[in-house]
Write a protein that binds this DNA or RNA. Sequence first.
DNA 1: GTTGTATGAATGAATG
DNA 2: CATTCATTCATACAAC
Lengths: 201, 201
Amino acid sequence: MDDRNQDSYGGPNLQRSTLEPLRTRWTPKPEQILILESIFNSGMVNPPKDETVRIRKLLEQFGSVGDANVFYWFQNRRSRSRRRQRQLQASLMADPRAAGAAQHAGAAATSSSSNSPGGGFFACASSPSAAASSSSSDFVIDDSADDLFSISRQMGFVEATQTPPFTCSSDASNAETITVFIDGVASEVPKGPIDLRAAFG
Amino acid sequence: MDDRNQDSYGGPNLQRSTLEPLRTRWTPKPEQILILESIFNSGMVNPPKDETVRIRKLLEQFGSVGDANVFYWFQNRRSRSRRRQRQLQASLMADPRAAGAAQHAGAAATSSSSNSPGGGFFACASSPSAAASSSSSDFVIDDSADDLFSISRQMGFVEATQTPPFTCSSDASNAETITVFIDGVASEVPKGPIDLRAAFG
DNA sequence: GTTGTATGAATGAATG
DNA sequence: CATTCATTCATACAAC
């Protein structure tokens, strides 16, 4: 998709200074990353254009974002995810002894959070129910169990001892949605052909 | 179908230097971009095949390039510029207040013209003069004032504070120029590797 | 302040 | 022409 257009990029997330001639690049907020990660892991790795707009609107609750940013994010996510996997495969073939040795593996392993109603720490992954999605190549099954935890950097929860900013978990009662908790605010992300944002408004 | 014939794609981009990163894909030189940008901006947004060949020969003065590269360049340019504009309009409709706020739009917007010996500051465009537009959908007249300044990246003149980004219609005062003729549209491009702005400061 | 790296942005190269 | 992938450039941020 070539949605890279700098559409609604009116005001990125810059410092509060009233002057900002700097064209800084978009730096996604932790909440935004969480949402994006959740969507990606829910199986929608290549959202069609209209979904991109929806996702952008969702993300805008936490900071200025443009459609192009969302588009780029998914593009890069897909690309890098695939490349990592390919590289992993290659290295495994090259040297079978090197099994299970990611360079920065268990970053999130230390949490043991039990603070939010959702409970789980970062368990957004679930099985895409293979709904006949509208477009062609969005919903990829995304077997591969991608790097669920490669987001440690910007996520901010590196060592959240007391207040986990947000969590994301599958709701047991309703198998059709993924629930994202952010500071106690719950949003539900349908697993199906993404129909985000009903909860947030 | 389309005329993307990979005709002379035999040896487009070779690195004559003994040690280079060994690029696989064509990396247009600044001068080449200038020429392409000039042609595109002159109204020829979809050159027919024979023109593509001529353009390629022109570009070859500054580095190896194949017809396919030229073809792809125009195709991508068309596509991306159109969508950019479409999105711009969409975002304007969404929030009229956000007028004129593309993320990196006016990098050179401070049009301090009449500063360089050449004169104009991106005056390659001329009247197409209705030369026999052989093919079907070339020469789109409107072109709607595309993003003239979206080339900042590879052009190298990242941020000229006061000097105009470049000119391409320098007269015969300087022997270090080459003349670009496209359907009667003449453009002159300074020779030499990357010092396009050498003439300006 | 320098370096290393993760990642946003851009674009060449396809494919349909 | 619409979309997508692969590669590269540029930068924000962290570690030193």
